[in-house]
Write a protein that binds this DNA or RNA. Sequence first.
DNA 1: GAAAAAAAGAGGGTTTTCCCTCTATAAAAA
DNA 2: TTTTTATAGAGGGAAAACCCTCTTTTTTTC
Lengths: 219, 219
Amino acid sequence: MDKIKISITDDHKIFREGLKTALSVCPDFEIVLESDNGEELLLNYPRVRPDIFLMDINMPKLDGISTTKQLTQAFPDARVIALSVSNQELYVSKMFDAGARGYILKDADPEEIIKAIQIVNSGEYYFADNLSVTLFKKLVNNNHPVFSLPVADAPDLNKTEISILELICKEHTTQEIGDILSLSAKTIENYRMKMLAKTKSRNTAGLVIYAIQKGYVIL
Amino acid sequence: MDKIKISITDDHKIFREGLKTALSVCPDFEIVLESDNGEELLLNYPRVRPDIFLMDINMPKLDGISTTKQLTQAFPDARVIALSVSNQELYVSKMFDAGARGYILKDADPEEIIKAIQIVNSGEYYFADNLSVTLFKKLVNNNHPVFSLPVADAPDLNKTEISILELICKEHTTQEIGDILSLSAKTIENYRMKMLAKTKSRNTAGLVIYAIQKGYVIL
DNA sequence: GAAAAAAAGAGGGTTTTCCCTCTATAAAAA
DNA sequence: TTTTTATAGAGGGAAAACCCTCTTTTTTTC
């Protein structure tokens, strides 16, 4: 029987090392590719054609969601398992939307990851059992096509708005944010107001919650 | 020369494995303790007396900040190096406040972590060079005693404070919270101020972040 | 190149939050 | 029983956030 060819994409070198160690107990696994980010992966995977793509979500350059989207479009047979620190609904559903077939949390036991790889490799889907309960309920209720529904797309924020939002979450005042970004406090205020409207928030608390839920800020 | 006794505290088993692999290249390092969370660490460290504590910040049960605080109070010679995915000023300063002597990001190269351990073990402080520039400036300006200021202890909130915190996260104003809890707006205001002090926050944003991190509010 | 859209900034007023200090009362603790 | 602590409340001032409208500049698009 052929070995299962595995690709690891994660910007944390040490986490990659840990994964390799964890997977080394399985003689039928072979790590054929390691990448620091999505860009690197997309550049190199055609050479080695991995069966399973272990994919971090939060990465510089090209994040896991976009990478998975591009990967599954170019190579529909790619079997992507998302690895994330977060069990936030948004991430999970976006990742499955993008074409992932498995989702495990990074605090999972090595055994669970091995199991997930074997299951996904056999053509099935794998969800970590410690995944968001609400999401699970949704899955049970709507059979399965939950993830291919038109995802009410986020009233996304532009780069400046995101920087400001990040600084708000770091407890900076409007004045301070202006100084940091070399913009007038009045401009920052206008951005805040625009964000309140976009995110349908009443105040700073709402903005912070939104930032965390959408993954703009990671705790 | 004696080996450097190292403790690893992180809820991600795989990350711990990766760390062990990374540190195994140094013959004078010895991993004497591995813990899943702060509670476990505090229970077991007296047996082995590690020299260096590698400490994750985001952990279940007892987070890295509280753990470090308790650890350095009971054992002032403990040399804690924070490991975090975030370079948010807030975390960094809270961690140093709690008594940490080093701070590295989880995407650091193994070489950097080894360097950090050696430096901190020699009695010095270590800051990742990719850490927040603004924080670095603060450090340079005020020499160093920034972080050794009087540390307010146990930021535990009582029931009323928690209800108010929850309502703040639901975007209610002080006045509205007073109406809901049948307390005067002035009382709510006083509670807010007390919570700002307890949680070392500057404003509402900080309170919301705290609420989420401590699990008072679930997203 | 003109029109439209996005980004940056300002004026001015209202509300809310922040930050003191200080009082009163009820419940625990010494 | 006195003292301390927790809880509830108030005054007043300063700062920040909120919320309009409106102008200018830059960038994009037709």
